[in-house]
């Protein structure tokens, strides 16, 4: 059913792709930095500290997107008995974890001038911290368990429990009284952010997405070579 997901075929594409993604990332990231640090206006209330948004928000969006993708891939791998879905999920996890840490650390730095504290056990921040733990559990499971069938089962269970946390992160600012502000950007309704700030945010999100794609491809290629190394042992 998933013949197009044959690792040998995929490798022909994924081995060449990073050399095109890397320069594209550098260009988009450079434009994003100029927009975020120089061209975008300061906020009337938060002044220049609003610029932290251009790294904090894309990192948070991408980590949530990656965790959702990992869950879908793990479940698909389990349902369709396709090992390649698990390898893709495993290759996505490192960048998801790093983006999660970036979102937490930059959020903490932004919290100091805005709320007067580096950390608060607020619903949004705490649920993001819980997501880091799920990423760590997912990655540790791959390191701890030798048996492939066992690791597929355990990582799928981790993602099923972890995905419950994703809507909690998204709606925590609506469900509870939190220090964290509600979403300024809505896909279905009008966004409350000005276009002069939305443009750098979109460019930085594109740059972060390209970086996670680059890391994913490099990690995925490594995983495929690892499999081929085992194949050579069996010859």
């Amino acid at each position: 059913m998933f013949k197009f997901l044959n690792p040998s075929r995929i490798y022909l594409i994924t081995s060449k792709a990073p050399k095109y993604i890397m320069p594209l990332f550098i260009v988009v990231f450079s434009i994003g930095l100029v927009e975020a640090l120089i061209l975008s206006p300061e906020d009337y209330k938060q002044s220049h500290s609003v610029r932290i948004m251009y790294v904090h928000v894309p990192a948070a969006w991408i980590t949530l997107g990656i965790f959702s993708s990992i869950t879908i891939l793990s479940l698909s791998g389990y349902i369709f008995k396709n090992k390649n879905f698990f390898i893709i999920a495993k290759s996505l996890a490192p960048s998801g974890l790093v983006f999660n840490i970036i979102a937490l650390v930059t959020g903490s730095i932004w919290g100091k001038p805005t709320w007067g504290t580096w950390w608060a056990w607020d619903a949004r921040i705490t649920s993001m911290l819980i997501l880091v733990l799920f990423y760590l559990m997912f990655l540790l499971a791959w390191r701890i368990y030798e048996d492939k069938e066992e690791v597929f089962k355990i990582t799928t269970i981790i993602t099923i429990f972890g995905i419950i946390n994703v809507p909690i992160i998204k709606y925590s600012v609506d469900w509870w009284n939190t220090l964290h502000q509600p979403a300024s950007i809505n896909i279905l309704s009008k966004s409350s952010i000005h276009s002069s700030m939305l443009l750098p945010l979109i460019i930085m999100t594109a740059a972060f997405a390209l970086f996670s794609l680059l890391i994913f491809l490099m990690k995925y290629n490594t995983e495929l070579i690892k499999i081929k190394n085992k194949g050579l042992d069996r010859l």
Partner: peptide
Amino acid sequence: MNGYGSYVWSSFAFTFFSFSVLYIIIKIQY
């Protein structure tokens, strides 16, 4: 940046540092 420079620059520096570390680790593994 009106007194916010240390917060803004440290956020961007941490992001850049994280990107570099992740890239180097994944590249070494490869």
